[in-house]
Design a protein around this nucleic acid. Structure first.
Lengths: 185, 185
DNA sequence: CGGTAAAGTAAACGCTGTCCACATACACTA
DNA sequence: TAGTGTATGTGGACAGCGTTTACTTTACCG
């Protein structure tokens, strides 16, 4: 339901209907519909993490660690954006209601055991380790980088840019990551 | 209602209640609740435009047009972010459902007659005119710049960063605008 | 004075989340 | 083996929501 219609579509009664069960049966498994949505969101975050991981796995550590770091950051950004375009409902659900960033719920992770935010941190660490980022610039850089792609994703999914064709969005995403790379330091 | 509770709080029946009127009376003024929300969103966008304008009005054209251009862009970004922090409900309402960017509804503007997007374009034009931006880099730059502040605003308002203190958010905003300035070209 | 259009009302429908009391079914223990 | 407790599911009800249909009031203008 979240996949198709986003957070508003995850409605308790409909879930029980699909389970061929009475509406109240849901209350044996979730305290209320907010708790149900919470569980769904957790799944969506895991899927997002998986999408980012897959994008990251395409680049292996080679000769130049700086190239690797750049590619990692790019992978996180484009993986994020790609998931948002491929699974708009799940993406919107994943960020529909605030779980704090510093509560590493293991249920939000994929195979690497890192949630999306931690994957971003990983990429930025590689930037710093390879000398692309000073310690000072590294600080809070995840928030800056995250804001950019998240903003684009939301403007496209549920904002004024929703009519923009996908390939143009992805092209903008590329420019965006480049902008982050250049602008962070 | 939007101011206090965001888009979900603008409920038709409650509006009629506050107007001391029967629920159906609303249908003499709005086709349905979506139309009502549309009207509310329009107001919210105007307020946002006004907030940006006010921030922009603090900087006047001086000696150096490049300084002016930079300050303009900064004003748009920080005006945007400031409004989001001051009026979270209205901000969330303003972007709750997609009106396309290229439908210049005059109702969305403030005193200058420009909607928020057009105000951003104005600032970027100043960047180009003063030589800070090449024609090529100018293209679609509004989407890149917009994405960044919008993303931060949403991560804070209804995302995982909602517990971050305001002053830290604004500090991040400053860095963000700097990143855009540097990263656009 | 009369007719027309705008605004408001009343009752009803189906949908939602949620609470209450009650039924079953399985497991483990005395 | 009998019995009890916990997990799960059911049925009925309630309030709130958006929306429709049909009816009433109000105000104005020729």
């Amino acid at each position: 339901m979240a996949r198709v219609g986003g957070p508003d579509a995850v409605v308790l009664r409909e879930a029980t209907r699909q389970a061929v069960v009475s509406p109240n049966a849901a209350y044996r498994h979730f305290a209320n519909q907010a708790a149900l949505l919470d569980a769904v969101r957790s799944v969506c975050l895991s899927r997002l993490a998986a999408a980012i991981e897959e994008e990251m796995s395409k680049t292996r550590l080679g000769r130049d660690p700086q190239v690797f770091a750049r590619k990692s950051l790019r992978a996180v950004g484009m993986g994020y954006l790609g998931f948002a375009m491929r699974e708009p409902g799940m993406f919107r659900t994943a960020f529909s209601v605030p779980p704090t960033v510093d509560s590493p719920n293991p249920a939000n992770t994929a195979s690497m055991g890192l949630n999306p935010f931690e994957l971003l941190s990983l990429a930025l660490n590689r930037m710093q380790e390879s000398g692309l980022l000073t310690k000072k610039d590294r600080k809070d850089a995840e928030y800056l980088a995250w804001s950019t792609v998240h903003g684009l994703a939301l403007l496209v999914l549920e904002g004024p840019l929703h009519k923009m064709p996908h390939e143009r969005v992805l092209a903008l995403g590329e420019r965006l990551v480049t902008m982050v790379e250049r602008g962070l330091s």
